[in-house]
């Protein structure tokens, strides 16, 4: 796997004495959309945060572009070209939409701000309308757009998305997934996405992993997992 942009191998992460990840292996090849599905509390968000070094893995290695980033401080990791739209969106509520986007460009290549801003506004025209509004006053869907837009501002090599569809109306969910597909196709951006909405995520993904209580139990292409009986029974039945 020499063309893997991100390689997570044998990673164990702890919150205090609780072992949240119990030896996780995940590979994210350049240019693909990779998704990780699993139930609440399986450790999906923990994996995304571990990639960013907060908390850092206690055992195992995280390689980004072949470089070991396991023990680097968070701000050093993200400066290498990783951006995350985290669980719960975590927009800065007392800053304007525009300031939130400015915060997203800290690790951006110099001089790219205007073009990236235009690109984000093109993807999410709503953000342009709300530019000078305090982010805390946005609706849930708009906040999600802002969280993704903010992550895109630094033109990352790897985009980590944590449940981009959580709590959103079906129409907005479809819009968000369209945007994800678009940035992958048109900007060749590599995306690693955690989702509960397994159907949409698997349809979109080139490659997928299933996580159960801190371990990866299954992997394959998106289509394979979508057809898999076990996956259907556990994550798809009853929905959609």
């Amino acid at each position: 796997m020499s063309d893997a942009l991100l390689q997570v191998s044998g990673v164990h992460t702890y919150y205090g004495a609780i072992e949240a990840l119990k030896g996780v292996d995940v590979t994210v090849p350049e240019g693909e959309i990779v998704t990780l599905i699993g139930a609440n509390g399986a450790g999906k968000s923990t994996l995304l945060m571990t990639i960013c070094g907060n908390p850092a893995a206690r055992k195992g290695r995280v390689l980004f572009q072949g470089e070991d980033i396991t023990r680097l401080p968070t701000f050093e990791i993200v400066r290498r070209g990783i951006a995350q739209s985290p669980e719960g969106r975590r927009i800065f509520p007392r800053m304007t939409v525009f300031e939130n986007l400015q915060m997203g460009s800290i690790t951006a290549p110099p001089g790219s701000f205007d073009s990236e801003l235009e690109r984000v506004f093109h993807l999410f025209p709503r953000l342009k309308e709300r530019m000078d509004q305090r982010a805390g006053t946005l609706s849930g869907g708009e906040q999600q757009m802002l969280a993704i837009g903010r992550a895109l501002m630094c033109r990352p090599k790897l985009l980590l998305l944590d449940e981009p569809s959580l709590g959103l109306a079906p129409l907005v969910v479809r819009q968000i997934f369209q945007v994800i597909r678009e940035i992958n196709r048109e900007q060749k951006m590599t995306i690693f996405m955690v989702e509960q909405n397994a159907y949409h995520a698997l349809k979109l993904a080139h490659r997928a992993y299933v996580m159960v209580t801190g371990k990866v139990t299954m992997s394959g292409t998106g289509a394979e997992l979508l057809a898999n009986e076990e996956v259907r029974a556990a994550y798809l039945e009853g929905g959609h």
């Binding site: 960013c52 400066r79 800065f92």
Partner: peptide, 13 residues
């Protein structure tokens, strides 16, 4: 407002 998020965006907290 949010030190964790600031770190994720590349701020040296």
């Amino acid at each position: 407002q949010d030190k964790t998020m600031a770190g994720l965006l590349g701020v040296n907290v």
